[in-house]
Design a protein around this nucleic acid. Structure first.
Lengths: 208, 208
DNA sequence: ATACAAAAGCTAATAGTATTAGCTTTTGGG
DNA sequence: CCCAAAAGCTAATACTATTAGCTTTTGTAT
């Protein structure tokens, strides 16, 4: 019997094709083995069970997404960069819904390789925000809000959460436009919050 | 042997306790049956298998979340209402992480009862936005962006997506403050987008 | 009170899943 | 050309869900 010539990467890629076609719930060693024309236990020579396979898929997807975001932002700055990244983010989730879903399981804290790869998409967003003059602590908060907006939209959309007939593309454009304005006026938002914290509701006296 | 006295509701509530403690992945008929002191097939007298149990949990959670949001908003309007709803939304996800996760599987299109219950949280957001003068088509788009922001944050947070030490509460306050400003200036955002669409990049001549 | 039918529980059987153990075969380097 | 490691396999075990069919409880109508 000829050998199949598998590698961890090949197994993960076949699994990625499977879940992009049939959804993350369809992921099983049995299904992947069948697609590869191999018995189920053979997969254990390449990935560490179902958990290990999920990790490989996550690494694959994080690296891909990081790449797409980077490419989309190169040569651009400020609002243009942010819009481009937002479009690329959603496009990846559309093109690879299974991988995007697989990406949402955070890697283990001691898995430094995975941590490094998962950090790439976040680094791209951080770089984009630097173009708005946001860095340090505030960059962390701003990246979190930006990730929340993009991921939240894409996640709800992919789960069929937007049932009404209104154009979903238009909704996303408005979300992105709102995000551009939010990061543009980030310092105002920060001082509005600090103002609340200090005097319990009023706007601070000086600023606009 | 005495009877257990189960009902669909009781089964769903025990399952909800289980997944709030151990995560949605721990949901199985076997685990629920064990907690109820009953054999696995007995559950089929009350729920339609694992799929049916998931549906019941979803209904339970959607009704609870809808209630919490409504209660949080009553007596408030405008930014205060929005902030209160945002806090209640995140609090529900913290208090009931398993139920919140279970909520993310959209009900079947022909399941009108589920559709009706799942709509309640969305209706609360719609009502809040009406207090900002947003309705009709624009309310649909605005509710989508709002849901995206809130769900995205809570979802990333619950998955351990915010690894850095910066205060997550502070990030959320900034997200909510940004959302308040976004809905406040919603008409500006809309016209900015329309401007782009018409003349390919520039701001429109007239507006601020 | 009692009979009875429906509801609620059970056991047993089937099928699908992951995982481990251990065997066989291929394959590439000395 | 040999031989050890790698890559595949089968078999066995232990879960899981689901269905079929049996028994027992329980509430209601006579």
């Amino acid at each position: 019997m000829p050998r199949a010539g598998l590698t961890p990467r090949l197994v993960a890629e076949e699994a990625a094709l499977l879940i992009d076609e049939q959804g993350l719930d369809a992921l099983s060693l049995a299904a992947v083995a069948k697609r590869l024309g191999v018995a189920v236990p053979s997969l254990y020579k390449h990935v560490d069970g179902l958990t290990g396979l999920r990790r490989e898929i996550g690494l694959l997807a994080a690296a891909e997404l990081g790449d797409r975001l980077r490419v989309s932002a190169t040569g651009l700055a400020g609002p243009d960069a942010l819009r481009a990244v937002a479009v690329a983010y959603r496009r990846y989730a559309h093109t690879h819904p299974g991988r995007y879903a697989a990406l949402q399981r955070a890697p283990a804290a001691d898995d430094t390789e995975a941590q490094r790869i998962y950090a790439v998409p976040v680094e791209v967003l951080t770089a984009v925000l630097r173009g708005f003059g946001i860095d340090g602590d505030q960059a962390v908060h701003a990246v979190r809000t930006l990730r929340s907006a993009l991921h939240g939209f894409v996640d709800l959309e992919s789960r069929g959460g937007f049932g009404l007939p209104e154009d979903v593309d238009e909704s996303y454009e408005l979300l992105v436009e709102g995000s551009v304005r939010a990061v543009r006026s980030w310092p105002d938002t920060v001082s509005a919050r600090f103002g609340e914290e200090r005097n319990g509701g009023g706007r601070p006296g000086g600023g606009p």
